[in-house]
Design a protein around this nucleic acid. Structure first.
Length: 458
RNA sequence: GGCGACGUAGCCAAGUGGUUAAGGCAGGGGUCUGCAAAACCCUGAUCGGCGGUUCGAAUCCGCCCGUCGCCUCCA
Protein backbone atom coordinates (compact mmCIF):
# COMPACT_ATOMS: atom_id res chain seq x y z
CA UNK A 1 0.00 0.00 0.00
CA UNK A 2 1.18 3.50 -0.79
CA UNK A 3 0.60 6.40 1.57
CA UNK A 4 1.42 10.06 1.11
CA UNK A 5 3.93 11.06 3.73
CA UNK A 6 3.90 14.74 4.66
CA UNK A 7 7.51 14.42 5.76
CA UNK A 8 8.80 13.46 2.31
CA UNK A 9 6.02 15.05 0.31
CA UNK A 10 5.68 11.82 -1.64
CA UNK A 11 3.67 8.65 -1.77
CA UNK A 12 5.74 5.89 -0.22
CA UNK A 13 5.26 2.16 0.19
CA UNK A 14 3.87 1.49 3.57
CA UNK A 15 4.67 -1.45 5.79
CA UNK A 16 4.98 -1.44 9.56
CA UNK A 17 8.54 -1.40 10.87
CA UNK A 18 7.95 -4.47 12.99
CA UNK A 19 5.05 -6.01 14.86
CA UNK A 20 1.70 -4.27 14.84
CA UNK A 21 1.12 -0.97 13.05
CA UNK A 22 1.67 1.73 15.64
CA UNK A 23 -0.82 4.45 14.88
CA UNK A 24 -1.33 7.64 16.82
CA UNK A 25 -4.10 10.07 15.92
CA UNK A 26 -4.36 13.48 17.52
CA UNK A 27 -7.52 13.70 19.57
CA UNK A 28 -9.76 16.56 20.57
CA UNK A 29 -9.52 19.28 23.15
CA UNK A 30 -12.88 18.92 24.87
CA UNK A 31 -13.90 22.50 25.52
CA UNK A 32 -16.91 22.58 23.21
CA UNK A 33 -19.06 20.24 21.15
CA UNK A 34 -17.37 18.29 18.42
CA UNK A 35 -18.38 19.11 14.87
CA UNK A 36 -18.39 17.60 11.41
CA UNK A 37 -14.79 18.67 10.87
CA UNK A 38 -13.73 16.37 13.67
CA UNK A 39 -16.01 13.68 12.33
CA UNK A 40 -14.32 13.99 8.95
CA UNK A 41 -10.86 13.43 10.38
CA UNK A 42 -11.82 10.48 12.55
CA UNK A 43 -13.87 8.85 9.81
CA UNK A 44 -10.83 9.03 7.55
CA UNK A 45 -8.41 7.53 10.04
CA UNK A 46 -11.02 4.93 10.94
CA UNK A 47 -11.18 3.91 7.29
CA UNK A 48 -7.39 3.70 7.24
CA UNK A 49 -7.33 1.52 10.34
CA UNK A 50 -10.10 -0.75 9.06
CA UNK A 51 -8.34 -1.13 5.75
CA UNK A 52 -5.00 -1.97 7.37
CA UNK A 53 -6.76 -4.59 9.45
CA UNK A 54 -8.57 -5.87 6.39
CA UNK A 55 -5.23 -6.37 4.72
CA UNK A 56 -4.06 -8.46 7.64
CA UNK A 57 -2.16 -5.94 9.76
CA UNK A 58 -2.63 -5.78 13.45
CA UNK A 59 -3.08 -2.13 14.42
CA UNK A 60 -2.40 -0.58 17.77
CA UNK A 61 -4.25 2.72 17.83
CA UNK A 62 -3.74 5.42 20.43
CA UNK A 63 -5.62 8.69 20.62
CA UNK A 64 -5.25 11.39 23.25
CA UNK A 65 -7.63 13.73 24.99
CA UNK A 66 -6.17 17.14 25.77
CA UNK A 67 -8.29 17.53 28.86
CA UNK A 68 -6.54 20.58 30.26
CA UNK A 69 -5.79 23.80 28.40
CA UNK A 70 -6.58 27.51 28.30
CA UNK A 71 -9.83 27.14 26.44
CA UNK A 72 -11.17 24.47 28.75
CA UNK A 73 -10.40 26.64 31.72
CA UNK A 74 -11.98 29.69 30.12
CA UNK A 75 -15.12 27.85 29.08
CA UNK A 76 -15.50 26.12 32.44
CA UNK A 77 -15.20 29.45 34.22
CA UNK A 78 -17.87 30.82 31.93
CA UNK A 79 -20.17 27.93 32.80
CA UNK A 80 -19.22 28.05 36.45
CA UNK A 81 -18.14 24.41 36.62
CA UNK A 82 -14.75 22.83 37.29
CA UNK A 83 -12.62 22.32 34.15
CA UNK A 84 -12.42 18.58 34.76
CA UNK A 85 -16.18 18.30 34.84
CA UNK A 86 -16.53 20.12 31.52
CA UNK A 87 -13.87 17.94 29.93
CA UNK A 88 -15.49 14.81 31.32
CA UNK A 89 -18.90 15.68 29.87
CA UNK A 90 -17.54 16.55 26.46
CA UNK A 91 -15.37 13.46 26.30
CA UNK A 92 -18.40 11.30 27.03
CA UNK A 93 -20.36 13.11 24.33
CA UNK A 94 -17.52 12.74 21.85
CA UNK A 95 -17.15 9.03 22.56
CA UNK A 96 -20.87 8.46 22.07
CA UNK A 97 -20.84 10.33 18.77
CA UNK A 98 -17.86 8.37 17.51
CA UNK A 99 -19.65 5.15 18.35
CA UNK A 100 -22.74 6.37 16.52
CA UNK A 101 -20.54 7.16 13.52
CA UNK A 102 -19.24 3.60 13.68
CA UNK A 103 -15.69 4.77 14.36
CA UNK A 104 -13.72 1.97 15.98
CA UNK A 105 -12.45 2.96 19.41
CA UNK A 106 -8.72 3.41 19.90
CA UNK A 107 -7.00 0.86 22.09
CA UNK A 108 -5.86 3.52 24.53
CA UNK A 109 -7.20 7.01 25.18
CA UNK A 110 -4.60 8.66 27.40
CA UNK A 111 -5.52 11.98 28.94
CA UNK A 112 -3.15 14.85 29.52
CA UNK A 113 -4.11 15.16 33.18
CA UNK A 114 -3.31 11.51 33.79
CA UNK A 115 0.11 11.66 32.16
CA UNK A 116 1.64 14.57 34.03
CA UNK A 117 4.49 12.53 35.56
CA UNK A 118 5.40 11.12 32.14
CA UNK A 119 5.58 14.62 30.75
CA UNK A 120 7.60 15.93 33.67
CA UNK A 121 10.12 13.13 33.14
CA UNK A 122 10.39 13.97 29.50
CA UNK A 123 10.81 17.68 30.16
CA UNK A 124 13.50 17.01 32.77
CA UNK A 125 15.42 14.89 30.31
CA UNK A 126 15.13 17.57 27.66
CA UNK A 127 16.56 20.12 30.08
CA UNK A 128 19.40 17.75 30.98
CA UNK A 129 20.22 17.27 27.34
CA UNK A 130 20.27 20.99 26.69
CA UNK A 131 17.15 21.00 24.54
CA UNK A 132 15.07 22.92 27.02
CA UNK A 133 15.52 25.63 29.58
CA UNK A 134 13.70 27.04 32.53
CA UNK A 135 12.70 30.67 32.51
CA UNK A 136 10.75 32.22 35.35
CA UNK A 137 9.09 28.89 36.26
CA UNK A 138 8.11 28.24 32.65
CA UNK A 139 10.02 25.70 30.63
CA UNK A 140 10.65 26.20 26.92
CA UNK A 141 11.97 23.98 24.19
CA UNK A 142 15.12 25.42 22.63
CA UNK A 143 14.32 25.25 18.95
CA UNK A 144 17.80 26.28 17.90
CA UNK A 145 19.22 23.15 19.53
CA UNK A 146 17.41 20.91 17.04
CA UNK A 147 19.21 21.60 13.81
CA UNK A 148 16.61 20.02 11.55
CA UNK A 149 13.69 21.87 13.10
CA UNK A 150 11.17 22.65 10.38
CA UNK A 151 11.64 19.50 8.34
CA UNK A 152 7.98 18.49 8.44
CA UNK A 153 6.41 21.80 7.54
CA UNK A 154 9.22 22.78 5.20
CA UNK A 155 10.07 26.04 6.85
CA UNK A 156 13.44 27.11 8.08
CA UNK A 157 14.02 28.58 11.47
CA UNK A 158 14.80 31.92 9.84
CA UNK A 159 11.53 31.79 7.93
CA UNK A 160 9.66 31.01 11.11
CA UNK A 161 11.41 33.84 12.82
CA UNK A 162 10.60 36.31 10.07
CA UNK A 163 7.41 34.53 9.35
CA UNK A 164 4.65 36.58 10.84
CA UNK A 165 1.87 37.63 8.52
CA UNK A 166 2.07 40.70 6.34
CA UNK A 167 5.82 40.76 6.53
CA UNK A 168 5.95 41.87 10.08
CA UNK A 169 8.72 40.08 11.89
CA UNK A 170 7.91 37.86 14.80
CA UNK A 171 9.54 38.74 18.06
CA UNK A 172 9.56 37.55 21.60
CA UNK A 173 6.50 39.06 23.21
CA UNK A 174 6.97 41.27 26.21
CA UNK A 175 6.33 39.19 29.29
CA UNK A 176 7.66 36.06 27.69
CA UNK A 177 11.09 34.89 28.65
CA UNK A 178 12.02 32.97 25.57
CA UNK A 179 15.48 32.89 24.10
CA UNK A 180 14.02 32.69 20.63
CA UNK A 181 10.55 33.55 19.30
CA UNK A 182 10.17 30.04 17.90
CA UNK A 183 10.73 28.40 21.27
CA UNK A 184 7.57 26.86 22.65
CA UNK A 185 6.29 26.07 26.12
CA UNK A 186 6.80 22.63 27.60
CA UNK A 187 5.61 23.66 31.02
CA UNK A 188 3.53 26.67 31.95
CA UNK A 189 3.70 28.13 35.45
CA UNK A 190 0.28 28.27 37.09
CA UNK A 191 -1.62 31.52 37.19
CA UNK A 192 -3.78 32.20 40.22
CA UNK A 193 -6.95 30.13 40.27
CA UNK A 194 -5.88 27.72 37.56
CA UNK A 195 -5.64 23.99 38.02
CA UNK A 196 -2.02 23.04 38.54
CA UNK A 197 0.28 20.15 39.26
CA UNK A 198 3.52 20.18 41.24
CA UNK A 199 6.76 20.00 39.29
CA UNK A 200 10.47 20.64 39.75
CA UNK A 201 9.80 24.13 38.34
CA UNK A 202 6.92 24.89 40.63
CA UNK A 203 3.18 24.36 40.21
CA UNK A 204 1.93 24.55 36.66
CA UNK A 205 0.62 22.54 33.75
CA UNK A 206 2.06 21.03 30.62
CA UNK A 207 2.21 22.79 27.27
CA UNK A 208 0.10 21.39 24.50
CA UNK A 209 2.72 19.76 22.31
CA UNK A 210 4.50 17.71 24.94
CA UNK A 211 1.52 15.50 25.71
CA UNK A 212 1.44 13.79 22.35
CA UNK A 213 5.17 13.09 22.52
CA UNK A 214 4.94 11.69 26.03
CA UNK A 215 1.89 9.58 25.33
CA UNK A 216 3.02 8.18 22.03
CA UNK A 217 6.41 7.18 23.41
CA UNK A 218 4.79 5.66 26.47
CA UNK A 219 2.08 3.69 24.71
CA UNK A 220 3.60 2.96 21.32
CA UNK A 221 7.36 3.25 21.72
CA UNK A 222 10.01 5.53 20.31
CA UNK A 223 9.09 5.11 16.68
CA UNK A 224 5.55 5.28 15.36
CA UNK A 225 4.46 3.90 12.03
CA UNK A 226 1.67 6.39 11.47
CA UNK A 227 0.79 9.67 13.05
CA UNK A 228 -2.35 11.38 11.80
CA UNK A 229 -4.30 14.56 12.21
CA UNK A 230 -5.71 17.54 10.35
CA UNK A 231 -3.42 19.58 8.08
CA UNK A 232 -3.55 22.48 10.46
CA UNK A 233 -1.53 20.46 12.93
CA UNK A 234 1.49 20.22 10.67
CA UNK A 235 2.79 23.45 12.06
CA UNK A 236 3.44 24.04 14.81
CA UNK A 237 2.03 21.03 16.66
CA UNK A 238 3.55 18.14 14.77
CA UNK A 239 6.74 20.01 14.01
CA UNK A 240 7.19 20.52 17.72
CA UNK A 241 6.34 16.93 18.51
CA UNK A 242 9.11 15.77 16.21
CA UNK A 243 11.61 18.13 17.80
CA UNK A 244 10.75 17.06 21.34
CA UNK A 245 10.48 13.38 20.69
CA UNK A 246 13.63 13.04 18.66
CA UNK A 247 15.56 15.21 21.08
CA UNK A 248 14.29 13.05 23.92
CA UNK A 249 14.85 9.60 22.44
CA UNK A 250 17.83 10.47 20.28
CA UNK A 251 16.13 8.40 17.61
CA UNK A 252 14.99 9.34 14.15
CA UNK A 253 12.49 9.29 12.75
CA UNK A 254 9.98 9.75 15.51
CA UNK A 255 7.24 8.94 13.00
CA UNK A 256 7.71 7.01 9.78
CA UNK A 257 4.53 8.21 8.07
CA UNK A 258 2.90 11.55 8.78
CA UNK A 259 -0.65 11.64 7.41
CA UNK A 260 -2.78 14.77 7.29
CA UNK A 261 -6.35 15.14 6.19
CA UNK A 262 -7.70 18.25 4.46
CA UNK A 263 -9.92 20.69 6.24
CA UNK A 264 -13.70 20.86 6.21
CA UNK A 265 -15.06 24.19 5.07
CA UNK A 266 -18.34 25.85 5.69
CA UNK A 267 -19.11 28.20 2.83
CA UNK A 268 -15.85 29.98 2.14
CA UNK A 269 -14.34 29.51 5.58
CA UNK A 270 -12.86 26.60 7.41
CA UNK A 271 -15.14 25.04 9.98
CA UNK A 272 -13.60 25.71 13.32
CA UNK A 273 -14.63 26.07 16.90
CA UNK A 274 -12.75 29.32 17.20
CA UNK A 275 -14.68 30.78 14.26
CA UNK A 276 -17.94 29.51 15.69
CA UNK A 277 -19.22 28.31 12.33
CA UNK A 278 -19.70 24.70 13.21
CA UNK A 279 -22.21 21.99 12.44
CA UNK A 280 -22.28 19.62 15.41
CA UNK A 281 -21.80 15.92 14.76
CA UNK A 282 -25.13 15.23 16.41
CA UNK A 283 -26.89 17.28 13.75
CA UNK A 284 -25.13 15.42 10.95
CA UNK A 285 -26.01 12.08 12.50
CA UNK A 286 -29.60 13.01 13.04
CA UNK A 287 -30.22 14.34 9.55
CA UNK A 288 -28.07 12.07 7.41
CA UNK A 289 -27.17 9.05 9.50
CA UNK A 290 -23.75 7.58 10.08
CA UNK A 291 -23.49 6.09 6.61
CA UNK A 292 -24.62 9.34 5.00
CA UNK A 293 -21.94 11.29 6.86
CA UNK A 294 -19.30 8.70 6.04
CA UNK A 295 -20.17 8.64 2.37
CA UNK A 296 -20.05 12.42 2.23
CA UNK A 297 -16.54 12.35 3.66
CA UNK A 298 -15.18 9.29 1.87
CA UNK A 299 -16.48 10.32 -1.53
CA UNK A 300 -13.53 12.67 -1.89
CA UNK A 301 -9.85 12.18 -1.26
CA UNK A 302 -8.80 12.57 2.37
CA UNK A 303 -6.07 15.08 1.62
CA UNK A 304 -8.36 17.41 -0.32
CA UNK A 305 -10.35 20.05 1.45
CA UNK A 306 -14.05 19.33 1.63
CA UNK A 307 -16.87 21.84 1.71
CA UNK A 308 -19.88 21.22 3.88
CA UNK A 309 -23.21 21.44 2.13
CA UNK A 310 -26.62 20.07 2.90
CA UNK A 311 -26.83 18.96 -0.69
CA UNK A 312 -23.59 17.04 -0.34
CA UNK A 313 -24.69 15.27 2.81
CA UNK A 314 -28.11 14.61 1.32
CA UNK A 315 -26.36 13.02 -1.66
CA UNK A 316 -24.37 10.90 0.78
CA UNK A 317 -27.53 9.79 2.49
CA UNK A 318 -29.23 8.84 -0.76
CA UNK A 319 -26.13 7.01 -1.93
CA UNK A 320 -26.01 5.09 1.35
CA UNK A 321 -29.59 4.01 0.79
CA UNK A 322 -28.68 2.83 -2.68
CA UNK A 323 -25.90 0.65 -1.35
CA UNK A 324 -28.05 -0.62 1.48
CA UNK A 325 -30.87 -1.73 -0.78
CA UNK A 326 -28.48 -3.41 -3.18
CA UNK A 327 -26.89 -5.28 -0.29
CA UNK A 328 -30.09 -6.26 1.48
CA UNK A 329 -32.96 -6.90 -0.93
CA UNK A 330 -33.27 -10.59 -1.61
CA UNK A 331 -32.59 -12.07 -5.02
CA UNK A 332 -34.11 -15.20 -6.44
CA UNK A 333 -33.50 -18.71 -7.64
CA UNK A 334 -31.37 -19.99 -10.43
CA UNK A 335 -28.95 -18.35 -12.79
CA UNK A 336 -25.35 -17.48 -13.37
CA UNK A 337 -23.63 -16.59 -10.09
CA UNK A 338 -22.31 -13.11 -9.63
CA UNK A 339 -18.54 -13.09 -9.26
CA UNK A 340 -17.52 -10.09 -7.17
CA UNK A 341 -13.80 -10.70 -7.53
CA UNK A 342 -13.17 -7.98 -10.10
CA UNK A 343 -14.88 -5.43 -7.87
CA UNK A 344 -12.94 -6.53 -4.83
CA UNK A 345 -9.73 -6.17 -6.80
CA UNK A 346 -10.66 -2.66 -7.93
CA UNK A 347 -11.51 -1.72 -4.36
CA UNK A 348 -8.18 -2.94 -3.03
CA UNK A 349 -6.24 -1.32 -5.83
CA UNK A 350 -7.90 2.02 -5.09
CA UNK A 351 -7.36 1.80 -1.35
CA UNK A 352 -3.76 0.74 -1.86
CA UNK A 353 -3.17 3.98 -3.72
CA UNK A 354 -3.00 6.39 -0.80
CA UNK A 355 -6.45 5.47 0.47
CA UNK A 356 -8.38 6.52 -2.60
CA UNK A 357 -11.79 5.99 -1.04
CA UNK A 358 -13.58 7.85 -3.82
CA UNK A 359 -12.36 5.35 -6.35
CA UNK A 360 -13.00 2.46 -3.99
CA UNK A 361 -16.58 3.65 -3.61
CA UNK A 362 -16.99 3.79 -7.36
CA UNK A 363 -16.18 0.07 -7.41
CA UNK A 364 -18.84 -0.53 -4.75
CA UNK A 365 -21.48 1.37 -6.71
CA UNK A 366 -20.64 -0.60 -9.81
CA UNK A 367 -20.97 -3.79 -7.80
CA UNK A 368 -24.32 -2.57 -6.49
CA UNK A 369 -25.52 -2.03 -10.05
CA UNK A 370 -24.38 -5.52 -10.98
CA UNK A 371 -26.31 -6.96 -8.03
CA UNK A 372 -29.48 -5.05 -8.94
CA UNK A 373 -29.16 -6.17 -12.52
CA UNK A 374 -28.86 -9.80 -11.47
CA UNK A 375 -31.83 -9.42 -9.16
CA UNK A 376 -33.91 -7.96 -11.98
CA UNK A 377 -33.01 -11.03 -14.03
CA UNK A 378 -34.09 -13.27 -11.19
CA UNK A 379 -30.59 -14.54 -10.61
CA UNK A 380 -28.94 -15.22 -7.27
CA UNK A 381 -27.19 -12.28 -5.67
CA UNK A 382 -25.96 -13.56 -2.31
CA UNK A 383 -22.31 -13.74 -3.27
CA UNK A 384 -22.30 -10.22 -4.62
CA UNK A 385 -24.14 -8.94 -1.59
CA UNK A 386 -21.72 -10.61 0.79
CA UNK A 387 -18.83 -8.92 -1.01
CA UNK A 388 -20.61 -5.59 -0.98
CA UNK A 389 -21.20 -5.81 2.75
CA UNK A 390 -17.65 -6.91 3.34
CA UNK A 391 -16.11 -4.03 1.40
CA UNK A 392 -18.57 -1.45 2.68
CA UNK A 393 -17.61 -2.62 6.13
CA UNK A 394 -13.99 -1.82 5.40
CA UNK A 395 -15.11 1.78 4.92
CA UNK A 396 -17.05 1.55 8.15
CA UNK A 397 -20.43 1.64 6.45
CA UNK A 398 -23.04 -0.31 8.37
CA UNK A 399 -25.65 -0.49 5.58
CA UNK A 400 -28.14 -0.72 8.42
CA UNK A 401 -31.69 0.46 8.10
CA UNK A 402 -32.78 3.41 10.15
CA UNK A 403 -34.21 2.27 13.43
CA UNK A 404 -37.95 1.94 13.73
CA UNK A 405 -39.36 1.79 17.21
CA UNK A 406 -40.24 -1.78 18.01
CA UNK A 407 -43.69 -0.73 19.14
CA UNK A 408 -44.51 0.85 15.77
CA UNK A 409 -43.78 -2.22 13.67
CA UNK A 410 -46.99 -4.21 14.20
CA UNK A 411 -49.07 -1.13 13.47
CA UNK A 412 -47.24 -0.44 10.25
CA UNK A 413 -47.63 -4.09 9.26
CA UNK A 414 -51.33 -3.83 9.99
CA UNK A 415 -51.73 -0.72 7.82
CA UNK A 416 -49.83 -2.39 5.01
CA UNK A 417 -52.08 -5.43 5.25
CA UNK A 418 -55.23 -3.31 5.17
CA UNK A 419 -53.91 -1.34 2.24
CA UNK A 420 -53.28 -4.56 0.31
CA UNK A 421 -56.88 -5.52 0.84
CA UNK A 422 -58.03 -2.13 -0.38
CA UNK A 423 -55.89 -2.59 -3.47
CA UNK A 424 -57.35 -6.00 -4.13
CA UNK A 425 -60.74 -4.39 -3.94
CA UNK A 426 -59.39 -1.75 -6.33
CA UNK A 427 -60.17 0.99 -3.84
CA UNK A 428 -57.09 2.87 -5.00
CA UNK A 429 -58.03 6.24 -3.64
CA UNK A 430 -58.05 4.86 -0.12
CA UNK A 431 -54.99 2.65 -0.56
CA UNK A 432 -53.02 5.57 -1.98
CA UNK A 433 -54.01 7.67 0.95
CA UNK A 434 -52.60 5.08 3.34
CA UNK A 435 -49.38 5.09 1.36
CA UNK A 436 -48.99 8.83 1.18
CA UNK A 437 -49.85 9.34 4.84
CA UNK A 438 -47.30 6.73 5.83
CA UNK A 439 -44.76 8.44 3.58
CA UNK A 440 -45.34 11.67 5.46
CA UNK A 441 -44.55 9.76 8.64
CA UNK A 442 -41.29 8.52 7.17
CA UNK A 443 -42.36 5.06 6.05
CA UNK A 444 -41.97 4.27 2.35
CA UNK A 445 -44.02 1.47 0.79
CA UNK A 446 -43.00 -0.49 -2.26
CA UNK A 447 -45.21 -2.96 -4.06
CA UNK A 448 -43.33 -5.87 -5.57
CA UNK A 449 -44.26 -9.17 -7.06
CA UNK A 450 -43.33 -10.69 -3.72
CA UNK A 451 -45.78 -8.45 -1.93
CA UNK A 452 -45.53 -5.05 -0.33
CA UNK A 453 -42.48 -4.13 1.69
CA UNK A 454 -41.86 -1.05 3.74
CA UNK A 455 -38.86 0.77 5.01
CA UNK A 456 -37.92 3.80 6.99
CA UNK A 457 -37.14 6.86 4.96
CA UNK A 458 -36.27 10.20 6.55
C1' G B 1 6.36 39.02 3.14
C1' G B 2 7.53 33.40 3.34
C1' C B 3 5.58 28.42 2.33
C1' G B 4 1.69 25.65 0.09
C1' A B 5 -3.03 23.88 -2.11
C1' C B 6 -6.84 24.13 -5.51
C1' G B 7 -9.93 25.46 -10.27
C1' U B 8 -12.92 18.61 -14.24
C1' A B 9 -20.61 18.17 -16.44
C1' G B 10 -26.41 21.72 -12.61
C1' C B 11 -23.93 20.15 -7.64
C1' C B 12 -20.13 16.83 -5.21
C1' A B 13 -15.90 14.28 -7.04
C1' A B 14 -12.01 10.44 -9.17
C1' G B 15 -8.44 10.51 -12.93
C1' U B 16 -2.27 13.44 -13.37
C1' G B 17 0.99 11.68 -20.77
C1' G B 18 -2.12 7.60 -24.99
C1' U B 19 -8.63 2.91 -25.84
C1' U B 20 -15.53 5.51 -25.13
C1' A B 21 -12.70 11.54 -18.94
C1' A B 22 -14.83 6.79 -12.87
C1' G B 23 -18.64 7.11 -9.32
C1' G B 24 -22.58 9.68 -6.40
C1' C B 25 -26.64 13.35 -6.20
C1' A B 26 -30.02 16.14 -9.12
C1' G B 27 -32.53 16.48 -14.20
C1' G B 28 -34.74 14.44 -18.94
C1' G B 29 -36.64 10.00 -21.83
C1' G B 30 -37.97 4.76 -21.52
C1' U B 31 -39.11 -0.33 -19.15
C1' C B 32 -41.77 -2.31 -14.90
C1' U B 33 -46.39 -0.68 -11.88
C1' G B 34 -53.63 0.27 -11.12
C1' C B 35 -50.62 4.69 -9.93
C1' A B 36 -46.18 5.15 -7.36
C1' A B 37 -41.57 3.63 -5.20
C1' A B 38 -37.29 0.77 -5.86
C1' A B 39 -34.52 -1.19 -9.84
C1' C B 40 -32.78 -1.44 -14.79
C1' C B 41 -31.77 0.85 -19.84
C1' C B 42 -30.75 5.46 -22.57
C1' U B 43 -29.21 10.64 -21.93
C1' G B 44 -24.87 15.31 -20.26
C1' A B 45 -18.41 17.76 -19.65
C1' U B 46 -12.61 18.18 -23.92
C1' C B 47 -11.12 19.26 -18.21
C1' G B 48 -10.32 28.28 -15.50
C1' G B 49 -7.67 31.33 -19.78
C1' C B 50 -3.44 31.95 -23.07
C1' G B 51 1.14 30.08 -24.87
C1' G B 52 4.82 26.11 -25.02
C1' U B 53 7.02 20.85 -24.81
C1' U B 54 5.39 16.19 -27.27
C1' C B 55 3.58 11.85 -32.54
C1' G B 56 -0.01 12.63 -28.47
C1' A B 57 -1.84 16.64 -22.43
C1' A B 58 -7.28 17.47 -18.24
C1' U B 59 -2.49 15.14 -16.97
C1' C B 60 4.44 18.24 -18.02
C1' C B 61 6.47 23.66 -18.33
C1' G B 62 5.56 29.18 -18.35
C1' C B 63 2.46 33.33 -17.78
C1' C B 64 -2.33 35.19 -16.49
C1' C B 65 -7.20 35.06 -13.95
C1' G B 66 -9.88 33.19 -9.73
C1' U B 67 -10.49 30.70 -4.84
C1' C B 68 -8.33 29.08 -0.36
C1' G B 69 -4.92 27.41 3.58
C1' C B 70 -0.59 27.61 6.97
C1' C B 71 2.93 31.11 9.30
C1' U B 72 -1.69 32.32 16.30
C1' C B 73 -5.76 28.17 19.18
C1' C B 74 -7.73 24.37 15.89
C1' A B 75 -9.33 17.48 13.49
Amino acid sequence: MKLYNTLSGKKEDFAPADGPVKMYVCGVTPYDRSHLGHAMSYIIFDALRRYLEYRGHEVRHVQNYTDIDDRIIARANQLGIPPQELAEQLIAEYAAEMEALNVLPAHVYPRATEEIPTMIDMISTLIDKGYAYEAERDVYFRVSAKKDYGKLSGRSLEATEAGARCGVGREVEPGENKEHPGDFALWKAAKPGEPSWPSPWGPGRPGWHIECSAMSVKYLGETLDIHGGGVDLVFPHHENEIAQSEAYTGREPFVRFWLHNGWLYLDEEKMSKSLGNIIPISEGLEKYGADGCRLFVLNSHYRSPLTYSEEGLEAGKRAAERLRLAACLPGAGEGPPLDPEAFRRRFIEAMDDDLNTAQALAALFDLAREINRARDEGWPVEEGQAALRELAGVLGLTLAEEEVGLAARPFIDLLVELRDELREAKLYQLSDKVRSRLAELGVALEDTSEGTRWRRRG
